[in-house]
Amino acid sequence: MKRFMWLVPALYIVFLMLPIYWLLSMSFKHTNEILGGFTLWPRNFTLENYHKILTEPTWYMGYVNSLTYVTINTVLSIAVALPAAYAFSRYRFLGDKHLFFWLLSNRMAPAAVFALPFFQLYSAIGLFDTHIAVALAHCLFNVPLAVWILEGFMSGVPKELDELAFIDGYPFWKFFLKILLPAIAAGIGVAAFFCFMFSWVELLLAKTLTSVEAKPIAAIMTRTASSSGYELGLLAAAGALTIVPGAFVIYFVRNYIAKGFSLGRV
C-alpha cells in the first residue's frame, strides 16, 4: 500500500497539468486556430502572442505594476500579522475572541461590495492610481488571513519553549527572531505565498483603484475581451506568464513550507 502512495500526488498533478498544457498550447496558437477546431498541439505554432506582451509597454508594465503592489502588500501583511498573531496565540485580552472573528469577517465580504466605497475613499485621500493604494486595499483581506494562519502555527509551538528561552536569558526580540520564527517557518512560508497569491489574482479592487500608472496585469488582460471578440491566444499567453512570478515565490518558500521544527532545547 505504501509503495503506491506516490500515485496520489502523481495523478493529482497530471489532473492539474492538463488544463495548463491546454493554456500553454493556446498561447502558441492564433486565435483563429483556437476557435477553428480541435488541435492537440499548435498546428501553426506562433510566438506572436508572447512577442506582443513582452514588447508592448502597456502589457509588460502590467506585470511590473502587479508585482510591485503585491510585493508591498505581502511584506506589509506578514510584518503586521506577526506581532498580532503572537498576541492572539499567547495572551488573553479584552475582546480578543471578538477581534479575531471580526478580522476573519473582513475576508467574507465580496469585493464588489467594497469597490465603489474604496474608489471614493482612496480618491479622497489622494492615493488613486498608486501602487500603495492597491497594496493597502488588499490588506483588507490579506492581513486577516496572515494573522489567522500564523496564529495557528504559533499555537502549535508549546509555550514552554518561550519560557525556556527566557530562562536561558534570551531577550524577547532575540527569542522571536531566532527561536519562534524558525519554529513556525512552515506557517510563514504558506502565509506569504497565500498573501502573494490572493493579491496577485485580485482583479476588481485593483482595477477600480488604478487607471494608468499602476494598472495591474489582470486588468490589462480584460482588454482582450474587446470589440473584436476574445483574443484568446493573447489572453492565454498573458495567463501563462502570470504563473511565472508565483512559481518563483513558491520555489523560494518551498523550504519553509516543508520545514518542521524539533522539540528540543535550542
Binding site: L16, P19, W22, L23, W200, L203, G239, I243, G246
Partner: peptide
C-alpha cells in the same frame, strides 16, 4: 511548484481557459 500553478492564474483566465 506544480501544485501551486492553478492558484496563480487570474480568475478570469481560469474561467476562459
Amino acid at each position: 511548484v506544480l501544485m501551486s500553478m492553478p492558484l496563480l492564474i487570474p480568475w478570469n483566465v481560469v474561467g476562459a481557459m
